[in-house]
């Protein structure tokens, strides 16, 4: 590594010089071809802005190379302006903003019943490694507080495990299952990972959002529902799937149920059942993980097509000889 020295200003100079002298790798034509496909509506704009930027720079010395670079930059800007905003997986920002229902001055503590649970959780860890209990305690606090963690709850957990509050904030912001802004009593999580997406999770999310009239991570006016996204929950073989986190009865009645092999129509039915206070059955048939009545657990629709008999013993080994 170079030592910090008085000589280092050169690094800035040579960088910009280098860019000036180098040939631009991407020609205008190349870029235009790449642009065309995703954002065809962009193109009508570009001649105008291009000519504008040409006019702007024509006062100085111009070269074809420079023009090409300008054009490329402009196209890049336009492309970026029309990009889809990145999807947010977490329910909140990575920093806290005070609000009437979420600020460090609000008192928060575990309920009496949960205090016993806290003791039980702490007993799993050596007394000098209390901080190991941070995740189970945050989970318990979230269940108790209607599915989300206000700052004061995280502070309370930090106090119990005797660490600085920021160590708890680090954990709570890392895991997307800890919600740091308000969620509905029923928090619906749509799996968005590749197998579910291929099997139509986007449509399922759209159906839920349209039916409830909310945006992602927004709570319905009655406070009952919110829709979020969760990454792979391990049910790829029964994709697509949603999870319903039920915070309506505190930590005692807390459930976290998987609904697999769902359809846009089906998830709306589930929502309506929840709204009526019913518990939509997790399985259509007892012992089955899927909502599709024609499937048995992860098996194919209409029954098994392979492995119909007991597997044969391995052909190359004589087990009796062992």
């Amino acid at each position: 590594m170079q030592p910090r020295s008085r000589g280092s200003p050169i690094s800035i100079l040579t960088r910009s010089d280098g860019a000036e002298n180098s040939t631009c790798p991407r020609s205008l034509a190349q870029l235009q071809v790449r642009q065309k496909a995703p954002n065809s509506q962009v193109l009508p704009l570009s001649p105008l802005s291009l000519s504008l930027s040409l006019w702007y720079y024509s006062a100085g010395a111009t070269s074809p190379k420079m023009l090409a670079r300008l054009a490329a930059n402009r196209l890049l800007e336009i492309r970026q302006a029309f990009r889809q905003p990145s999807r947010s997986f977490s329910t909140a920002l990575n920093y806290h903003l005070d609000s009437p229902d979420n600020n460090p001055d609000l008192p928060w503590e575990f309920s009496d019943a949960n205090k016993d649970k806290v003791k039980e959780i702490l007993s799993h860890y050596p007394s000098n490694y209390k901080q190991s209990a941070v995740i189970p305690l945050l989970d318990l606090a979230q269940q108790q507080h209607g599915g989300w963690l206000p700052v004061s709850a995280m502070n309370a957990v930090a106090k119990i495990i005797e660490v600085a509050p920021v160590r708890v904030f680090e954990v709570a912001t890392f895991y997307s299952m800890f919600n740091r802004s308000k969620v509905g009593k029923y928090h619906l999580l749509v799996c968005g990972t590749t197998p579910c997406m291929i099997r139509g999770s986007r449509e399922i999310e759209d159906a839920l959002l349209k039916h409830l009239g909310v945006k992602r991570n927004e709570v319905t006016k009655d406070g009952l529902f919110s829709v979020g996204e969760m990454e792979c929950m391990g049910c790829c073989v029964n994709a697509p799937m949603i999870t319903v986190a039920d915070y309506s009865n505190g930590s005692e009645g807390y459930t976290y149920n998987y609904y697999e092999d769902v359809t846009p129509k089906h998830v709306v039915e589930i929502v309506e059942k929840l709204r009526r206070g019913e518990k939509p059955p997790v399985r259509k048939l007892a012992g089955h993980g899927t909502q599709n009545p024609n499937r048995i657990m992860s098996g194919p629709e209409g029954g098994n097509t392979t492995l119909l008999t007991d597997p044969k013993p391995p052909p190359c080994r004589d087990l009796d000889a062992c």
């Binding site: 920093y95 920021v166 160590r167 680090e170 912001t173 890392f174 895991y175 997307s176």
Partner: peptide, 8 residues
């Protein structure tokens, strides 16, 4: 202990 690494 004020600074931390938040998010992922």
């Amino acid at each position: 202990q004020d600074l931390g690494m938040l998010g992922r």
